[in-house]
């Protein structure tokens, strides 16, 4: 995702993305070697066949999910919801944040930058925590693409029912806790401040304020 406050430092982001792939590749190869050594060749073949079955089931969902996620990013400006989620918003603010988190598509590379956007637009820490938990626990996209096809509708519904109120509880707890957090504490925001920032004085010109 090129958008978002972290987008300026491209090389570290690319490194991190490749690092994820390399770490997973290393884990997969070690797991494959271990299976080969401990359980023999038949077990390796069995695992690969299970992988293929799963891929056939999951791939159509992934394609649709990515398309939906991209279309929603074009349709819904993330900042549009923020004025409903301030510190005075009460339970309604937590409900709005929870709903926003559930419809938030995309992985962590999309969701955490949106937290920064919401915070700068006035969402308080309770709403931000509720947003993150609603996204990671009950994000519709993940439920539709992964949980429903793999684990089945009965289990997916049970799991969703058990997770439905947790973001509200966490958001309320975050409002009670004496741990303050502002966007200025975020490493992802350092050096990038969209919004009414005084223009930086050029080299040799202007006084530091």
């Amino acid at each position: 995702m090129p958008a978002g406050p972290g987008g300026r430092s491209l090389p570290p982001r690319m490194l991190r993305r490749n690092a994820t792939f390399l770490v997973i590749a290393a884990l997969t190869l070690s797991a494959a070697t271990a299976v080969w050594q401990l359980r023999g060749q038949a077990a390796v073949v069995h695992a690969l066949l299970a992988t293929w079955d799963l891929l056939v089931v999951v791939l159509p969902s992934i394609l649709a999910g990515l398309l939906l996620s991209a279309a929603l990013r074009q349709l819904v400006p993330p900042g549009a919801l923020a004025r409903w989620m301030g510190a005075e918003s009460g339970l309604r603010g937590l409900l709005v944040a929870t709903a926003a988190g559930m419809v938030m598509p995309g992985g962590p590379m999309a969701a955490f930058p949106v937290v920064l956007v919401l915070a700068q637009a006035g969402a308080d820490r309770g709403a931000l925590i509720a947003f993150v938990l609603a996204w990671s626990l009950n994000g519709f996209q993940r439920i539709l693409v992964w949980e429903l096809p793999i684990l089945g509708p009965d289990f997916a519904l049970l799991r969703l029912l058990c997770g439905l109120v947790l973001p509200l509880l966490a958001g309320q707890a975050a409002r009670w806790l004496p741990i303050r957090w502002t966007p200025a504490d975020a490493p992802g925001l350092q050096g990038t401040r969209p919004g009414p920032t005084p223009p930086e004085p050029g080299p040799g010109g202007g006084m530091p304020r």
Binding site: C162, A174, P187
Partner: peptide, 30 residues
Amino acid sequence: AWELPILGGRFILLRLTASFALPLLAGLLA
């Protein structure tokens, strides 16, 4: 991999303090 570099350690502290017991609650609800 993601929360620490983007939002920082203080956000993680706040979030985990507010939510570490909730998986237990989900299991009991289930």
